[in-house]
Amino acid sequence: MLTPEMLPRLQRLLADADLDGWLLYDFRGTNAIAQGLLGFEGMLTRRIFALIPREGLPIGIAHAIEPNPWASWPQVWPLRTYSGWRALEAEVASLVAGKRIAMEYSAGDAIPYLDRVPAGVLEMVRAAGATVVSSGDLVSQVYATWTPAQRASHERAAEVIAAVARDTIAHAGAMIAAGTPAAEHELQQRILEAFARAGLETEHGPDVAASENAANPHYVPSSAAPRLVVRGDVLLVDLWARETRGGVYADQTWMASMGAPSDKVVHVWEAVRDARDAALTLLRDRIAAGRPVRGGEADDAARTVITTRGYGPQFWHRTGHSIDSRELHGSGPQIDNLESRDDRLLIPGVGFSIEPGVYIPGELGVRSEVNAFVGEDALLITPITPQRDLFVV
């Protein structure tokens, strides 16, 4: 959240980027980045702007009937109000005319998670005489990075989640052995109960998918159409959670075979695991050497392994997503050169998932997911002990 304590650092970043300011905009929750930085909660029913200048105090523009969201705005910072569109456009122009400013904008929608400002608003700001550039690097440096306390929270959550995943897989096997196999949604509920006991929360899910259902990367188990997990199944367990009261999400996927796996299942698993490790090796080596690295390069490294093993067309999604200090699917750099063109550097303080997968419709899906955090000179990977071999239960 933007505070007087944060302001000097942010203004140094603006100066380093040769920017006159960062213009935040939101309306009806279209810009989660602006909402998070301004500390707003709930949905705005009127347009707002806030300029963080390279020098001087931030200036907010609020609608006259909606002052409540600005309760945390420091009293010493100017807060202008408007009622009509003419007044709003005049206020915006007075802030940005002749200036080079950053906004949540991505040319050509190259980075959808960053592209939060409507085209019409960009037209308004440019018509006022401003030069608009992407705030992508600022978002990485200010919004997406974790504090030491948040990193510690993530690490704790990651170890709990790993234990819950292993327990869920073992339980599925025990139920099969007892002759009373569990359904996917029952295993899902077991995970949620374990989260509650451990003081973790999640926004939705988790995903427990057997064989053909695992070929849908966003499958959701349901009691309305129960699917038992039986001998011969390949089981995918994808689970994510965070500590309550501001923790950072951990997000993992674990794989098991209910009984001896086929040669094909083993081949697919090894391709996915080796793709995961190829991405991590590239990142680890670059960061340790102090060399720049982008998420798209790690995506390419993983995709090359899966393509070489013959499953390239079955790897449908990016290798990983940002996990920022607020959101599971965050606004920081993505590990992606497939779905988007994210060319932002992976800088110290950002976290993300690494989760390549292979999906064969009607048959099986295999994914392996860990999380990573960029330190000053090393790459942290969670959980501490990632899955190496396919669990055979």
Rank of each mutant, 00 (worst) to 15 (best):
G290S: 06
A87D: 10
A165W: 02
R388V: 07
V305N: 09
I61E: 10
E186S: 15
L328A: 14
E193G: 08
D285R: 14
L114V: 01
I176H: 02
V293Y: 10
R326Y: 13
R286C: 15
M43R: 08
R86Q: 15
V125K: 03
G199L: 09
V142Q: 07
M258Q: 05
V370A: 03
M175A: 15
R326K: 10
N68G: 07
D300M: 09
A97G: 04
D26L: 05
G310H: 13
A278S: 15
G199I: 11
A196R: 12
R318P: 00
D16S: 14
L114A: 02
V220A: 11
G357A: 11
A110Y: 06
P348I: 10
Y219T: 09
P348G: 05
S325K: 13
I354D: 01
A378I: 03
I169Y: 04
R86I: 08
A64H: 07
D251I: 12
I101F: 09
E89S: 13
G259C: 08
A209W: 09
S340I: 04
E243H: 08
S72W: 01
R367M: 10
D377C: 11
A241Q: 10
T168C: 08
A302L: 01
Y143H: 15
G290Y: 01
E155A: 14
L338K: 12
I384H: 06
S94D: 04
T145R: 15
T253N: 11
A34P: 11
G246P: 01
R190E: 13
A256I: 00
E339H: 04
S340A: 05
E186M: 15
G84Y: 01
F40D: 00
P53R: 11
D238P: 14
L200A: 09
V125I: 08
